[in-house]
C-alpha cells in the first residue's frame, strides 16, 4: 500500500484520467479500460473530471444502469449537472415510473443498439438537449452491457456509426468505458476504431 490515503488517490485519479482523456481532443475516440468492479466508479470519476474540472458539456449514455444512479452520485458529490444530458436505454426495461426531467431522454433501443446514434442525428430534441456541435463529449457507460441484449454484429454497426458521428464533429470526443479482459471479443471489435486506450489499473499503480 502506498502512503497516500484512498481519498487522495481518488482525486489524483480523477485529475489524471481527465487530463489523459482530454489530451486526445475533438473528433477522436478513447477507450477507458477498467476492471469490471471499477466500471461504475470510473464513469463517475470521468464525469466528475469532465464537468467539474474541465467544465465540459456532454452526453452520458446509460447502457447498464438507469441514469438516475449516476445523477444521484453526481448530486451527492455536489457536482453541477447543468452541462450533462442523459440518454437512458435501460430504464424502459425496468419497472417503476419514468420521470422525464429536463436533461434526460428515454430510448427504447436496448435490443437494437445499432440504431442508437439516430438519437443524436436530430439537431437537438424536444427535451432541450443541445446538438452535437455544442457539446464536448459523449460518454458511453460500460460498453460490454450491450452484450446482454445484442449480437456482436449489431454492436459493431453501432460502433461504426458512433465513429462516423464523432469524426464528423471536430470538437466532440467519444469516450468508451469497459473491461477489455472480461470481454475480449468485444474488445477486438472496438480496437479498430480507437484513437487512444487508457488503462485505469496502470494509472492507479502509478499514483
Amino acid at each position: 500500500m502506498s502512503g497516500k490515503s484512498s481519498n487522495n488517490i481518488n482525486l489524483d485519479l480523477v485529475k489524471r484520467l481527465t487530463d489523459d482523456v482530454c489530451e486526445i481532443g475533438g473528433s477522436n475516440i478513447v477507450l477507458i479500460d477498467t476492471p469490471t468492479t471499477m466500471v461504475a466508479k470510473t464513469n463517475f470519476f470521468l464525469l466528475r473530471g469532465l464537468l467539474d474540472i474541465k467544465k465540459k458539456k456532454g452526453f452520458y449514455v446509460a447502457l447498464d444502469r438507469p441514469h438516475q444512479n449516476m445523477d444521484y452520485l453526481l448530486s451527492n458529490h455536489g457536482i453541477d449537472r447543468d452541462n450533462i444530458w442523459y440518454i437512458d436505454t435501460v430504464t424502459h426495461i425496468s419497472g417503476g415510473e419514468k420521470v422525464e426531467s429536463r436533461n434526460v431522454e428515454f430510448v427504447d433501443m436496448s435490443f437494437e443498439i445499432e440504431n442508437l446514434m439516430e438519437v443524436f442525428e436530430e439537431d437537438g430534441n424536444s427535451k432541450g438537449s443541445p446538438s452535437l456541435d455544442d457539446v464536448d463529449f459523449i460518454l458511453l457507460e460500460n460498453l460490454s452491457a450491450m452484450m446482454n441484449y445484442n449480437s456482436i454484429e449489431s454492436i459493431e454497426k453501432f460502433i461504426e456509426c458512433f465513429d462516423r458521428v464523432i469524426h464528423d464533429h471536430e470538437d466532440l470526443m467519444g469516450c468508451l468505458v469497459m473491461d477489455t479482459n472480461a470481454h475480449e471479443n468485444l474488445s477486438e471489435v472496438v480496437n479498430g476504431y480507437l484513437d487512444k486506450i487508457i488503462d485505469v489499473k496502470k494509472i492507479k499503480e502509478e499514483l
Binding site: T37, K41, Y72, L73, N76, H77
Partner: peptide, 10 residues
C-alpha cells in the same frame, strides 16, 4: 444510500 454514494465501494 447516501453513505454508499459518498464512498462508492465495490
Amino acid at each position: 444510500d447516501d453513505k454508499i454514494a459518498e464512498v462508492m465501494p465495490q
